[in-house]
Amino acid sequence: MFIVPIVYAAYLSFFQDKLVGGNTFVGLANYGKLFQDTQFWDGVGRVVRFTLVQVPLMLILSMALALALDSLRLHGAKFLRVTIFLPYAVPAIVSTLMWGFLLGIKYGLFGSLNEALGTDFNPFAPDTTLISIGVVVTWAFTGFNMLIFYAALKAVPRELYEAAAIDGANELQIVRAIKLPALRGSLVVTVIFSIIGTFQMFNEPQILPSMVANSGVTTFYTPNLYAYNLAFTGSQQGYAATLALVMAAITVAVAYAVQIRGLRNASDH
């Protein structure tokens, strides 16, 4: 049953629907066109670059926060846990709007900052927009990943810590020898989730252009946005289906590679 929409997309990808002349079977022509489509690869390159930078930073931050919470040395840990997780509950559309206002150069926070410092920094210029989106995404998902890590840490049997204490291990050694290895499985999961999430990035670049002038967000900024625009303004459903399938294949391949590698490393230990 889960396969039905995918099969249908595959079927669509063999057709071209023309405004004049209707639907025609074109074989693999859509695939040939896609592989030569510089706009598509531009979007793929962008989400890959984003993944390479944003995902490690976010996961390190999440892990550090989970370790801090688990150390039981923080006051108000419960409150902190909820606050860090809260952004995950904010819909991406709302959070993009919020950050758009916050980072706005005219009346937002950066407007005041630039005025105070006499600088001219624009968080939504073509060169900086992707970094700003990275900040928004990190803000939204750090808490979610932190909870996964935190749950894994909670599952570590307390006896291990007691044994370590008896052996005279200090806190740092406990983290290195017990806690980090315990996080390995959840690290694989969070990396895979994050890659899938990033590869499907859509809401942020979809909303931004209506808030900020010339942020550099194009109709093909991410593969998902491109597919949407192909299907809904270009009436190129067949081509959009092709793009969706190829993108799904790339995502699955990357996620699978991460999983294989993560599990192999895990069994090494």
Binding site: K106, Y107, S210, A213, N214
Partner: peptide, 13 residues
């Protein structure tokens, strides 16, 4: 002005 986009909050202001 090439910084303010029509129908945005900046435009209203």
């Amino acid at each position: 002005n090439t910084k303010i986009t029509g129908w945005s909050d900046d435009w209203n202001r």
